[in-house]
């Protein structure tokens, strides 16, 4: 009787504490974010295969390009893709708004293109997407961003992404500034004497970035073209 009671009690306790499902050998961890997109083919002939890749761009560092996560897509267009982002980008690709810690209220932000390339004979992607035929397409109106720490309001970090984003991955939409807007910002910056004045002037980079309305649920459109030079990617450099 004692043994039966103990076993039932044990079973009850175990049930209370053990409600997760066991994962199998294919488990790769919990993604920090999942990015969605749709590839449309505008090439004269569809490529036999393609790889979607995240290209991190470090505007001030070296190397300036870094291939992050990749995911192959089937060459049946339009093709939807889903890319699971399991890790944060490496520290060297993050844009350091803290200036080496001098501005502790700032943070570090990574910015990436979402590009499509053709795999080489070994099935690998050219890291520069250079060379004939290696670049197939790009998302022109969206970029992927990674914010290392919660952005504090009133900082350059907030100005850069047009809002006090939380730490983690974000899909940002790209808004093109007009020449006049760029000029106006540059004129203002020329007169600014304080950091707050500079922030108040806004960006003069030509492209403005803000959190996409649907966030990570945004289905990012990507165009495949015969010549990637005809595309207009966001100015991350």
């Amino acid at each position: 009787m004692f043994l039966l009671t103990s076993t039932l009690l044990f079973a009850g306790l175990m049930t209370s504490f053990g409600c997760d499902g066991q994962v199998d050998q294919d488990y790769e961890g919990e993604p920090l974010a999942t990015m969605l997109g749709t590839i449309r083919n505008e090439m004269t002939s569809a490529p036999p295969s393609a790889i979607v890749a995240v290209f991190w761009v470090n505007s001030a560092g070296s190397p300036d390009f870094f291939v992050g996560e990749t995911v192959p897509v089937e060459a049946h267009f339009p093709a939807d893709f889903s890319m699971k982002l399991y890790t944060s980008p490496p520290a060297e690709v993050l844009n350091d708004f803290t200036m080496g810690g001098r501005f502790p209220h700032e943070t570090r932000i990574g910015m990436a293109w979402i590009a499509v390339g053709a795999p080489d004979a070994q099935g690998e992607l050219n890291p520069d997407l250079a060379g004939p035929g290696s670049c197939l397409g790009l998302a022109e109106d969206h970029v992927l961003a990674y914010v290392e720490e919660d952005i504090v309001p009133g900082t350059f970090s907030e100005l850069f992404v047009q809002g006090p984003l939380k730490a983690g991955y974000h899909v940002l939409q790209v808004e093109r500034q007009s020449d006049a807007e760029v000029q106006r910002a540059m004129d203002c910056l020329a007169k600014a004497t304080t950091t707050q004045d500079e922030i108040a002037c806004g960006l003069a980079s030509g492209d403005l970035y803000s959190d996409a309305p649907q966030g990570l649920n945004t289905r990012i459109p990507v165009r495949l073209v015969d010549d990637c030079d005809t595309l207009e990617p966001a100015n991350l450099k």
């Binding site: 044990f10 053990g18 997760d20 499902g21 488990y27 919990e30």
Partner: peptide, 21 residues
């Protein structure tokens, strides 16, 4: 009856998983 616990090591985020059986 008992518990199965999976714990994970690596760079990726993977919290432990506990299942009663």
């Amino acid at each position: 009856s008992g518990l199965l616990q999976q714990s994970f090591e690596g760079e990726r985020v993977a919290p432990p998983r506990v299942s009663a059986f």
